[in-house]
Design a protein around this nucleic acid. Structure first.
Lengths: 383, 383
DNA sequence: TTTTATTTGTTAGTACAGTTTACTAACATT
DNA sequence: AATGTTAGTAAACTGTACTAACAAATAAAA
């Protein structure tokens, strides 16, 4: 009949929509609005979301019954009319456990409330190179952290280096000696709590997006033992065709060679920017004739190389904001200035203002906060 | 009250969901399914979408009443039970007008059916450098094309170089001498038809995605007078913070200088890869001692430079497929091979298979088909 | 040839989500 | 004390999709 038989593909949505889906969406929307804007009355919610007061009342009743929302009593604002009753998400009544597995020799865990406030912390030294033993250590840490919670837990969030699929299986994590480890399922079994495992940079991105005035089009670059990144594109995190989006550590930078990388090639971003690479370069600089100048040079070059590799991404995605997450002692100052300068030289800003470059707000907590955000989002039916 | 007051931002969906939204979604879903898989019975649709036969019947009734779907008569398959009635999208009964403004000296227009089949064509030579006169020429062309339609038109799609906002205003199009031209509104007024204006690379991306077995994570690179691109990230086109996603023509490539660009800087991708740049280089190569070798060198270098600038993007987005859209005489062969080789050298494939690189299927029609896809999608409530 | 099984599409009635309309309660203002 | 305003709720209505039941049309079996 027709010469061309095409597939009209218009996005990921391939499933039919039921009225109950809309209900779930609206319930989540109410909670998100409360989480974002703070306590407000049912009438406020009605105005904010465009649903009627009747519907909002119904939704709020259901949320309170579930324990997700609470009434805080009458608002004290002075104006005509019946005083309103403030409703808020159950901020203190629910908690989240977060695990951060990104540091070199230590596993960190924390109990947080729904605002991301740190309520308790614990950690474990990494005493083994064996993947299975490490898995046991992580689950034990999770169980311990769960025991420290003082309110019902919504779930557990884990930020780990490596590639993680959407079911919480760590496909590859060379630093931790893991291949196809079903970490999410293991922790879920040990604790009985819904567990969400994500790449550390992805967690950090969500943390910075939510708690750091993030943009809908941003890149977070995580500098640690290696270099990773995570991208928000149009308000949605890029996942990639193989769940490997953000893995920019082993992209060749520049056309003028470079140092040999542990991946066997030369000129990878990691050879210029990772913490070990920087420390080696700084140690050499300290012995130079002009240590201060040599140190600045190291930082300047590292920033340049990062900017060189980011420039095509910035242009292609039209990125608004770049956030660097890592040791401020290394990243702040010369390095970040160099990133800004080089980026301005290599990307023609089509429309001002140009891309901003900044450090993460609390680099040491960004991943943990991010895991909390992801757990909450997941509970609200997002992702 | 709380020390940290955060915004829980979890994506673009900030609006409440009404039951009617679900209905619209399901109507669109039925049409998309028919468009993709061809004519089928109501019972088939029910099985494919998971809705009941009753609901599907109701949806189909509405679509037929609107003129978007038609009954094709009984299926002739032999099996027990009442014969089914085939339903199909109204492929021939509705048409779409597409405009392609990307070529150097000519404006192209076509009437297409919903399968993207070309039914009629017309064009206009660009006889002016004046932006306003050109606008008049484009609207006149649109009116002419509308007059060539032989069935009711769903709308008009326009693919233009430059940056276009979501309301169809061309913010910047240096090649056409346009700044803040409300092209969509002008054509809509002149023709009385809903008009969708998009960047040419974005249109080509949609065309290739729909008609070319595209991937959910792909880049389309358009090589013409300049170099542009468009990215599909997770099945959604990247728009960018300033509607400028894909503008990679003026990113500096490499760290070894380059030719002066019309933007005033050196080493831009356009200085290596655009059609004018390639033609200049090829003319020089033809005078060399070894014309064939010199020609191959030109192509090889152009491919290298494209791959160098794409490498960070490929890694960051975890791209599955790269499509080149432009003159096959230039792009096919040495150039595209060089892209493949250089990409393999500069990106460490985390998980096989690696990114594929190919040419667009019918480069000269890709943009036009893409505009048709966009108009149809838009009619179905997508975007 | 008759009966049985199967499949399609429709009608009738139900559950659920959200709306409109109309109400009570509680306040400030005059 | 009268008036107007705002919050929250109750009842009835609209729209969406569901289950249950059925007629029509056919192939396959008896």
């Amino acid at each position: 009949m027709t010469s061309t038989r095409a597939r009209l593909r218009t996005g990921p949505e391939g499933t039919a929509s039921l009225p109950s889906d809309g209900r779930a969406h609206n319930l989540a929307l109410v909670l998100r609005t409360l989480h974002a804007a703070g306590a407000m009355s049912r009438a406020d919610l009605s105005r904010a979301l465009g649903l009627t007061r009747v519907t909002i009342s119904d939704l709020v009743t259901e949320l309170i019954a579930r324990g997700h929302a609470v009434e805080l009593g009458q608002s004290d604002e002075v104006r005509p009319g019946k005083p309103s009753i403030l409703v808020d998400i159950n901020r203190r009544g629910r908690q989240i456990v977060g695990l951060d597995l990104t540091e070199n020799h230590i596993l960190r865990a924390a109990v947080m409330d729904l605002d991301g406030t740190m309520l308790a912390r614990t950690d474990r030294a990494i005493t083994t190179e064996n993947g299975a033993e490490l898995t046991a250590l992580v689950t034990e840490l999770a169980v311990t952290a769960v025991g420290m919670a003082t309110a019902p837990l919504l779930g557990i969030g884990v930020g780990t280096p490596g590639i993680v699929d959407s079911d919480g299986v760590v496909t590859t994590a060379p630093n931790l000696g893991w291949t196809d480890v079903p970490l999410g399922a293991l922790i879920q079994e040990a604790t009985g709590l819904p567990t969400l495992v994500r790449n550390d940079a992805d967690a950090a991105l969500h943390g910075e997006y939510t708690f750091g005035q993030g943009s809908d089009d941003m890149i977070l670059v995580r500098v640690g033992r290696g270099v990773g990144s995570s991208l928000m594109v149009g308000g949605v995190r890029a996942r990639g065709a193989h769940h490997a989006a953000g893995e920019i550590g082993h992209v060749t930078v520049g056309t003028d060679g470079g140092t040999m990388c542990r991946c066997g090639r030369t000129g990878c971003l990691e050879t210029w920017l990772s913490v070990p690479a920087l420390e080696t370069a700084l140690a050499a600089a300290a012995l130079a004739e002009d240590p201060d100048g040599a140190t600045r040079d190291v930082m300047r070059v590292a920033g340049e190389r990062l900017a060189i590799s980011l420039a095509p991404i910035v242009a292609a995605i039209d990125v608004e904001e770049i956030v660097l997450c890592g040791p401020a002692a290394l990243l702040d100052g010369t390095l970040i200035d160099s990133v800004r300068e080089t980026l301005a030289l290599r990307v023609l800003p089509v429309i001002p203002p140009p891309t901003t470059v900044r450090l993460a707000q609390e680099p040491e907590n960004t991943v943990l906060r991010g895991t909390a955000v992801m757990v909450l989002s997941s509970q609200l039916g997002v992702e």
